[in-house]
Write a protein that binds this DNA or RNA. Structure first.
Lengths: 187, 187
DNA sequence: TATTTACTGAACAGAACTGTACAGTAAATA
DNA sequence: TATTTACTGTACAGTTCTGTTCAGTAAATA
């Protein structure tokens, strides 16, 4: 086989392990991501796990890497968003975070970060990128200095934790409040 | 011994187990609250644990009850705070949450809530009480309807998660931003 | 003085989970 | 056809933690 050829059928089962691990991570936190539990949920034996991953730590590292890359770049690299004015961008970001559930792993990651300094570092990087992204918007809106910093922090913090804090499913009410929040932030 | 008499020396060691458990809960989350680990940290054997608690679940229930009672009532039952105007109360509450570290168990409790519906219920109750407390302030400040609701949620969410989100220790900067946040919320 | 309360450590059984070894299989590739 | 890749299940050894039992102790109480 030529080394340039793409192998077929590669990583099918590996992705199943990862997908199920992400599911457990979201629903029950990183401590619940156990190899035995994953195998049971997938309906297979544990042994195949060690074909794909060195050990449990290796799997967790994959989850951390995935989150670090995926959940910083989605908003920041979006070319459509970059075209918008700061005003429109603020509202669009608020909608996207909610609709695409961009913060669904945040609680698990922050809890995990308490137990593992490498995770802590990764979480800090993500927060820093989100803050920088927000600062840019508020700078374009005409804010500067401490006023800019205060708004960037308030916005970033709320958008990160809204979903965890309020288990409210009144879509109409949420849209109304979103509009009011947007208005409060731009003036 | 008369049944009305207060027993001396009661609960000394029980409180040591609880205090150490709370310490671990704050630093590493509820999954890290293991009986063996606690005993090792206390420098004693595990067997005494079962004198005080039925089992691990019983200990965790105590931690949950403690948090539920302690961390709702501190602000709400404070008579000094009740005397203040809504304006002053808002700033005082912001300062107290920071100074007394009133949200130090929130991350652990929310992560735990994902795995246990009874914890989820307790966490929801605490959030509801905090929201009601905030709503009262913003109502007194002259807000109503959706505008009041939006502000109460934004305020509650930020105050709950500020400490988790920003590992910033610049005290001067924080005080400046606090004042600006206060100004933004009251007008 | 006798008893109860509040503990102590040592020892054991068992559950849950990890990691390794190994033999086998089915499909794709050389 | 032979080999490699990507898996499968069974079995075993080892760790960590739980919960129970038991024998003992030191202090407070009746």
């Amino acid at each position: 086989m030529k080394s340039t050829e793409v192998k077929k059928n590669k990583g099918i089962s590996k992705n199943q392990w990862l997908a199920k691990a992400l599911e457990l991570l979201e629903l029950e936190g990183f401590e619940a991501v156990k190899i035995e539990k994953l195998a049971k949920l997938l309906g297979i034996s544990r042994s195949g796990f060690y074909w794909h991953f060195k050990n449990r730590q290796d799997l967790l590292q994959h989850l951390l890497d995935f989150w670090s890359q995926e959940y910083t770049s989605i908003l920041i690299d979006d070319l459509e968003i970059k075209k918008l004015t700061a005003d429109e961008r603020l509202l669009t970001v608020m909608k996207m975070i909610r609709n695409k559930k961009l913060t669904k792993y945040d609680l698990a990651m922050n809890a995990w970060a308490k137990a593992d300094p490498r995770v802590h570092e990764a979480v800090n990087k993500v927060i820093k990128m989100r803050l920088d992204f927000s600062r840019e918007i508020f700078a374009e809106l005409g804010f500067d200095g401490d006023e800019l910093e205060m708004r960037a922090r308030l916005f970033t913090c709320y958008q990160t934790w809204e979903d965890v804090t309020f288990s409210d499913n009144d879509e109409k009410q949420n849209l109304k409040l979103q509009r009011l929040r947007h208005r409060m932030f731009i003036k």
